[in-house]
């Protein structure tokens, strides 16, 4: 399993770098798509099949289409004349490597403490009558813990997130409108 995890992680990092370093927007978009799909595999490896399915549906399915539509509507001639790096790039690369080297080393050699709270955050405290009758509802499944988290424990941030998305849409439309 660890071999797969390392392989998938390395591939994700590789394709993410490709997203920002490839010149043509379509190739960037395709690299992003591959990175998203690999991320879904990564989630599957850790047993989060619901998140993996959502990842494929929403990111690889929905958002990628939007990206490609966006690329289609933009003029790609200017790409040939713009540089993708500037003078600070090497210094930045050096600092990033130092930073990640140091913290990666520290993180690799440090132990995560054993969780003090044992999955109580997402466990179901009380079972209702219907739940007792239907045995498959008693199992701690992935979609179930996700929905308990979303619609019970974190209902307030979930609702406020709808406001957040409204703001994003309104702001995006406002900035793209022609007339004030």
């Amino acid at each position: 399993m660890i071999v797969f995890v390392v392989l998938v992680s390395v591939l994700i990092v590789f394709f993410s770098i490709m997203v920002v370093s490839l010149k043509h927007p379509i190739s960037s978009a395709v690299s992003l798509l591959i990175a998203f799909l690999l991320l879904a595999i990564f989630y599957l490896l850790y047993g989060a099949e619901f998140v993996a399915a959502v990842q494929v549906l929403i990111y690889a399915g929905g958002i990628m289409v939007l990206y490609l539509m966006g690329v289609m509507f933009t003029d790609s001639e200017w790409i040939k004349i713009t540089r993708q790096t500037h003078l600070q790039a090497w210094l930045a690369l050096f600092l990033v490597l130092v930073f990640f080297g140091y913290f990666g080393h520290k993180l690799y050699h440090s132990q995560y403490p054993a969780p003090a709270v044992k999955r109580t955050e997402i466990s179901i405290a009380k079972k209702s009558e219907t739940e007792k009758k239907l045995p498959y509802l008693q199992r701690e499944t992935n979609p179930r813990s996700v929905s308990v988290a979303l619609f019970k424990d974190y209902i307030y941030p979930f609702e406020i997130a709808s406001v957040l998305l409204t703001v994003a849409v309104v702001g995006g439309v406002f900035l793209a409108k022609k007339e004030v």
């Binding site: 941030p157 406001v163 957040l164 703001v167 994003a168």
Partner: peptide, 13 residues
Amino acid sequence: LTLWVGLETMALS
């Protein structure tokens, strides 16, 4: 999480 969602709503606007 709640704090972050509030923060982002404010910041995006």
